[in-house]
Computed example of a mutant assay.
Amino acid sequence: MEFDFLSPVHEDLLDEIRNLNPLAIGANIKLHTERSGMPDLEAVNVAIFGVSENRRAEKKTEAPDFDRLRETFYGLFPGNWKLNLADLGDIRAGATVEDTYFAVQTLVESLIKNDVLPIILGGSQDLIYAQYRAYDNLDQMVNLVNIDRNFDLGDAEKPISSHSYVGKIVVDQPYNLFNYSTVGYQTYYNSQDEIELMERLFFEAYRLGEVTSDISLMEPILRSADLVGLDLGAIDSAALNSSFFKSPNGFNGREICALSRYAGISDKISSFGVYEYQEQLGEQANMLIAQIIWYFIEGVNYRTNENTISAKKEFIKYQVPIDDEVLVFFKSPVSGRWWIEIPFLSNVNTKLKRHTLLPCSEADYLEACNQVIPERWYKAKRKNEV
C-alpha cells in the first residue's frame, strides 16, 4: 500500500530506537522510514499512525508531534503477543481540514479492508468523523463508542468541531450509524437538551460514577462497538499530571486501561482512536497513553473470534418469555460471555444482518428471568423499528 500523505517516522527517533533492548516493542515493530519506505503490511495485524490536525479543536494549540509518545511506547515490552505491529508514521494537516479527513478516511478504510486494525493517534477529536466515514463503503451499520466526559452532539447546523462531530455523524449521508454510546460522561459538562436528545435517539449514555462503580459493566458495550474513540479529557487530570486537562474528575489510570483492554478484546472493533493529544504533555501522561495503547493491543491478542458463524453454532440458547415477547439469549461455553438477539424486521430498510446478536451481561439474562426487559435490547429494537 502506498499513501503519499503519510510522513515517515523521524530519523532522530530511529537513532533512539537502535539503543533499545532488543526485546522491546520498538525493536520489533515494522516502521515507515525515509530510507526503506512503507513496510509490507501483508502479515501486519495492528498499524499505528498519528494525525497532526487540530484546527477545529475547541482549545487551539500547536499541531501535535507524537515523537515523545512513540519513544515511550517503543520502550515498553510486549506481552505474550502473536501479533505483528507496524508504525506508518503521521498524516500531516492538509491544505484544508477536509483534506485531512479524506486522508484519514482513505487510510482507515484501506487498512480495515486488508484486515489490519488501525490505532489512530489524534489531534482534535473531530477526527472521529473521518474515522467513522471510513465505514461508508463497508456495507454495514456501525456502533460508535465514545469514551468521553461530553456527548459531543453539538449543533449539526454549525461547522464541525471537536464538540459537535457526533451531530454531523447523525445527520450527514450516508447513514451508517446504528448506535452511539458515551462512556464516562459527566452531567455538568452536558446540557439537559443534549441529555434528552440522547434519550430520544435511543442512544446509550453511562455516567462516570456508574462506570467506575463496576468497570466490567462496560465490557458488553465495547464488545458491541465497531469503532471506539477515546478523548484524553475523560481521564482525571491528576492521572495525566497535566495542566492542559483541568478536570478533577475522570477515569484513573487503571480504569482507562481496563476500558482499553475491553475494547481490544472485542472481536468486532476494527478501529481505535486516541484523541486530544497535546505535544506539551509530560512524561507521566505519555507513559499512561502508551500503556492505554499497550492494553488495547493486549486485548486484541486475546480475541476469541466469537463473531464467526461457526463459533456461534456452539453457543447455548436460552428463551425467556416476557409479556408478548420471547427474548432469546445466547451464552458462549468458551468465554462465558452473553448475547441477546435483536428482532429482525424484513420490511425495514436496514443494513442490519438477520438475527443480529447484541452483547449483554449475565445480569441482563437474570433480570429478564425476573420479567424485566433489558434497556439495551429495548433501545436496539426501537432503533430498528424507526
Rank of each mutant, 00 (worst) to 15 (best):
L138Y: 06
V300T: 07
G233Y: 03
N241M: 15
A103W: 01
N384V: 10
W377D: 05
Y101G: 09
A103S: 06
A47F: 11
V116D: 02
V386F: 15
P22H: 03
Y132D: 08
S213Y: 06
E62V: 15
F329H: 08
L357R: 03
I25M: 01
E325V: 09
R35F: 12
E62Y: 15
V386I: 13
Y188R: 08
E196R: 08
P174I: 06
S270F: 04
T72N: 11
F49W: 02
A205F: 06
P64L: 15
E325K: 10
Y74G: 07
G250H: 12
T72F: 15
I322N: 08
S110P: 07
T100Q: 04
N384M: 14
G167Q: 06
Q105R: 10
P343K: 10
R149F: 15
S191G: 07
E283A: 12
I169D: 03
A238W: 06
E16I: 04
P22K: 09
D12G: 03
T304L: 14
F151N: 02
A368I: 04
V51M: 05
L127H: 00
Q125D: 13
S161V: 13
L208G: 10
N241L: 12
V328A: 00
I235L: 12
M141I: 09
L358C: 08
V326G: 04
D231H: 14
S247K: 11
I48T: 05
R354F: 15
E109I: 11
G264D: 00
A363W: 14
M198Y: 04
F203N: 05
Y302P: 01
K168D: 04
E16S: 12
